[in-house]
Design a protein around this nucleic acid. Sequence first.
DNA 1: TATATTTATTGCAATATTACGATTAAAGAA
DNA 2: TTCTTTAATCGTAATATTGCAATAAATATA
Lengths: 109, 109
Amino acid sequence: MGITKTEIFTDQQNQVSTFAKAFGHPARVAILQHLFKINACICGDLVEEIGLAQPTISQHLKELKTLGLIKGNIEGTSICYCIHTENWTKMKAVMLQFLDQDISKENCC
Amino acid sequence: MGITKTEIFTDQQNQVSTFAKAFGHPARVAILQHLFKINACICGDLVEEIGLAQPTISQHLKELKTLGLIKGNIEGTSICYCIHTENWTKMKAVMLQFLDQDISKENCC
DNA sequence: TATATTTATTGCAATATTACGATTAAAGAA
DNA sequence: TTCTTTAATCGTAATATTGCAATAAATATA
């Protein structure tokens, strides 16, 4: 069946997994790191920087944009992509809540 | 062609994406949260708790185990799964390094 | 207008993931 | 040994993801 049963999970669990899925490909990790590093970017740069074909990069950018983690401003014939700082902060809060769970000392194993 | 080109990315980028992929399904998020909550678990509990079939849960557990995020001890006919706290801490360090990138104020957009 | 540049979209092939029924394996109980 | 319980594995169908060539769209420039 191959289809994730999102309806049986909480909103928080679905949120965590949606963000995590976005980070679940090294190209998207690399894109985000590059955007953080140079703090402004056009797609062409990324194609050279990352080494995947232009349509592939464009597709990854679209996913990140749909999720709201990046935004793109048109600048002439190119597009200036950058981190959506507000949404990045919100995402971080969701992920940290998940990652920072308390580990009780009395562990069974 | 459906195959991720891991070889063109850094170890760190591949590490982040590998961990993120594990969290990229709500069932695995739910499993981990449940393990944190009750701090010991058998697979049967999870099947009831989460509402997916036993083979499906077993498959998700296997992925988490392979990644080293959980460990399982045999206890009679059942298996006691729990968080691998050491590895969880290591994973957290990798993820935090990625999530906590500095956002410069002079953003282009 | 015609041309060049840059990014998005389409279409498709290859691979990966998700889910579960059926079965197997392992260990305790009768 | 046989039965029961619990979890893993196998096999398979459905769906999702990845990657790119070809093409389209949008805008700047000659």
